[in-house]
Design a protein around this nucleic acid. Sequence first.
DNA 1: GGAAACTGACAACGATGGTAGTCAGTTACT
DNA 2: AGTAACTGACTACCATCGTTGTCAGTTTCC
Lengths: 207, 207
Amino acid sequence: MTATGTTRTWAGSTLAERKAVRRAQLVAAGRELLGAGQAVTVRSVCRAAKLTQRYFYESFGDRDELVIAAFEAAAHEAVAAIVEAVAETDGRPESVARAGVRVAVEQTIDDPRRGQVLVVAPVSDPVLFAKRDEMLPVLTALFEEHIDSDAGDSELVASALAGALVHLFFRYLTGELRVERAAFEEHCVRLLLAGGAGWRRPSVDTG
Amino acid sequence: MTATGTTRTWAGSTLAERKAVRRAQLVAAGRELLGAGQAVTVRSVCRAAKLTQRYFYESFGDRDELVIAAFEAAAHEAVAAIVEAVAETDGRPESVARAGVRVAVEQTIDDPRRGQVLVVAPVSDPVLFAKRDEMLPVLTALFEEHIDSDAGDSELVASALAGALVHLFFRYLTGELRVERAAFEEHCVRLLLAGGAGWRRPSVDTG
DNA sequence: GGAAACTGACAACGATGGTAGTCAGTTACT
DNA sequence: AGTAACTGACTACCATCGTTGTCAGTTTCC
C-alpha cells in the first residue's frame, strides 16, 4: 500500500490530524485572549497559538469565525455542566433553579476566564454579542421545561429574564455589584422561579 | 473700543460662537452616523459635518469623547420627556409606570434614530455601552422614587430591571421580538410595578 | 536520491484610522 | 495697505489590520 493524499504522515500524524491540532490551538488561543480581555486579531491569535498566519486560513474564513468558535467552546462547557446538574435534581422547580444558578455561577464566576468569554467579552464585540443572543434561548428553554410559569407571553418573559440575568452576571463579574454571593444566587433563583420575578408581591397585587 | 481676543468677529460671529456651532455640528453628525448604524471615526464624522479634521480637535480630545457627547444629547431628550410625563401623572405607581413606558417607547421606537443611538449602538461600541450603563441608574431611580417595592435588595432589583428592560427594548427595536406594541408596553409596565416582576405568581408562592 | 508535500519565517500590498502640519485664500482690525 | 487671525483643502506620517505570496529548510514517499 502506498501512502497517498491524506494518509501521508509528517512527524507521525496525517494532514487531517495536524489540521485538527492546529485548529484546536487557534481556538484555545482565542479563548485565552478573550478571557484576558485582549483583542483577537488574526495576528494576535496566531502569535498566541505560536502558528504562522498561513495556518489561520486553513480552518477559518475570518477572524469572526474563530471568535465564534472560541465562544462556542466555552458556552458548551457551561451548558453541559448546567444540564448535568439539572438532571441530577429531583425535578422540582426550586431544585432545578438552585442547581442551574449554582452551576452557572461556578462556571462563570469561579472560572473568571470563562466568565470573561461568556459574559464580558460580548459587550465589546458585536460578533459575540450576537452569538450569545442566539444561544440564550437554549438556556431559557432548559428552565422553562422544568419551571411552570403562568406569567404571560413566554417570549416577553424569556427576553426579560435573559436580559435580567445577563446584566446581573455582568455587573457581578465586573465587580460593580457589591453583594454577597449567596444573595446574588438567591436573587437569580427567585428570578427563575417567577419566570423573571425576584419579588414576592407586585404592588398591584396588594392594591 | 477695539475688538480684541474673543470679541473679534468673522462673518458676524465671535470665535466662541463659531466653536460652539462647529461643536454642535459635530455632535449632530455623530448622532446621525450612530442613528444610521454607521461607524463613527474622526474622518467620517467630519465628513458628515462638512468640517475639516482640524476642527475636530477644537472640541474633542478623541473620538470617544464625541461619541459620548452624541449619546448624551439623545439620552437627555429621552430622560427629559420621561420626567415631564411622570410629573404630569397623579403620582400613583401604575400611572407613573404607564407614562414612563409610553414615553420611553415613543422616544425610542417612534424615533428610530434616537432608538438606534440609545438602545442598539451600545451593543457594538464599548464606549457607549459603558456610558449607558452609567446612566441607567438615573432612570431606575426615577421609578423607584414613585414605585414602592418591597422586593428585596434594591441594587439587585434595579440591575435585574435595567437588564430586562434594555434587552426587551433592544429585541423589540431590532424586530426580533414579534409582539403587539400594547403587549410590549403592558409587559414593561408590569416589570416596573413589580420592581421587575412581570409575572403574577411565582410558582413557590402557590406550592 | 529526487521530487513533492509540508513547515516556519517573513515580506508585500492595500485599506483604514488617528493625529498634526502646511499653504493659499479670506476676513477683520488698525 | 499691512498684518494677524481664521478658514478650507490637503498632505504627511505612523500604526494596525487583513490577506496573500515567496522562500529556504524539512519530511516523506517512491
